[in-house]
Design a protein around this nucleic acid. Structure first.
Lengths: 104, 104
DNA sequence: ATTGTTGTACTAATATCATAGAACATTAGA
DNA sequence: TCTAATGTTCTATGATATTAGTACAACAAT
């Protein structure tokens, strides 16, 4: 089985996190996770190809924004809220609160 | 004289702002402005060519992060704190606070 | 076993970005 | 007017990012 690399908390970079979140599709994804808790990839209602979704998921994972856990055929995605709040207090909630009004 | 376009407050996009701030050089720039108030471009202590700095300043300006004002031969750069705090409450301070510890 | 689901890997096309050298424009000041 | 200071524009280049098509592997359900 393939090993999915996740950065350690202390290796999470602000610029990488901001870049990972600077895409509307990825903002949508983390917004969905934040609202509905951890969930498999196929739950996300984004108008893109599967391979493209994989790319975005990987981008978020490698930046340290999400945690990916394998469960059968599914990959369960969870937000690394605790790590993010420790590294960048207030950042995640500030971004997620924006989505509640007019996202994009 | 050249007209410098700035987006209106209501046209500022979260993804664009996050992208503008996802570069170490640009994080440095806004960190400097936040700490020392508005200042001309040549004040920034970044190891890049003038043309590159112009590119970064434009990226920040077009995303709605900074306000550029011409004063003689100088371009004075200011943070659009009020607009950003209105559009994305808490975002700017969360990002700037990170820089106070370990930036990059 | 067969079939369908789920997601990755590989590959490729296209687009965007960061960087900087050179030339140019504008302004201030001597 | 001449010169220095300040930035922009033009252009080019190498690096990444985005997107998707195809194939493949792991698993579930029948």
């Amino acid at each position: 089985m393939k090993i999915l690399h996740h950065p350690h908390r202390e290796d999470i970079q602000l610029s990488s996190v901001l870049h990972a979140l600077s895409d509307p599709v990825r903002l949508q994804i983390i917004s969905d996770i934040a609202a509905g808790g951890e969930q498999p990839c196929n739950n996300f209602d984004v108008p893109i190809a599967k391979s493209t979704l994989t790319h975005h998921i990987r981008t978020l994972r490698e930046a340290g924004v999400i945690q990916v856990r394998v469960q059968g055929t599914q990959h369960i995605i969870a937000l690394r809220s605790e790590d993010l709040n420790t590294c960048f207090p207030g950042l995640l909630s500030a971004i997620l609160n924006v989505g509640k009004n007019t996202n994009k």
